[in-house]
């Protein structure tokens, strides 16, 4: 068993903390002066007039992806509700009316009040049917019920939003940088 380290005895100068306080103030004042001279250095974002660009891996509100024909990609395999640590995904599965051999979600609800935005559901999905790449972080509502995002809400979530890089390339594959691959079919 390791012996406890003997406590270092502080000298008088150290135990008064005066030197450290002054060091800290010098740093703060330095930044203040620099920021006054060069105002672009400000870290504070004036939300909501200004919005921070979210990084590509930011986990925002969930969306359900669709096939080129508009059919939801999810096959109600129940991998995401199984892996979800917050138990906030509720899926009712049924036979797909367009092909009864296939399974699809009749209802697909995520309770955003319980979601912890871990992204496990996205990792677990074998169909790339659920994504958190919307970069939407303003997830709010007036009632608890409205905080439960349902299937049609999550399918249509990206409508009317500025297409993100991936969607731009999907619409215009020629514009994509060399080596860029997308697993979504290009849109004609």
């Amino acid at each position: 068993m390791p012996l406890p380290k003997p406590q270092k005895t502080l000298s008088f100068a150290e135990s008064s903390y005066l030197v450290e306080v002054i060091k800290g103030m010098v740093l703060t004042m330095g930044h203040l002066v620099k920021n006054i001279i060069d105002q672009d250095r400000f870290r504070t974002v004036e939300y909501p007039d200004v919005r921070k660009p979210m990084t590509a891996r930011y986990r925002g509100a969930h969306r359900l992806t669709v096939r080129p024909d508009g059919h939801v990609k999810c096959v109600a395999c129940m991998c995401c509700p199984t892996v979800c640590p917050a138990k906030c995904i509720t899926i009712i599965a049924g036979e797909d009316p367009s092909d009864p051999a296939e399974k699809f979600p009749v209802e697909f609800d995520i309770d955003m009040l319980r979601c912890i935005y871990c992204g496990f559901c996205v990792e677990a999905c074998p169909k790339d049917a659920i994504r958190m790449d919307t970069k939407i972080y303003e997830i709010n509502a007036y009632t608890r019920q409205d905080m439960v995002h349902n299937k049609s809400y999550m399918i249509n979530l990206m409508d009317g939003l500025k297409p993100e890089a991936e969607d731009v390339y999907r619409h215009d594959p020629a514009a994509a940088p060399a080596g860029y691959t997308s697993d979504e079919e290009p849109v004609a």
């Binding site: 096959v75 109600a76 395999c77 991998c79 296939e102 399974k103 074998p126 169909k127």
Partner: peptide, 8 residues
């Protein structure tokens, strides 16, 4: 087709 198979 494990994702849609009840035996899974």
């Amino acid at each position: 087709d494990c994702p849609i198979c009840d035996q899974s």
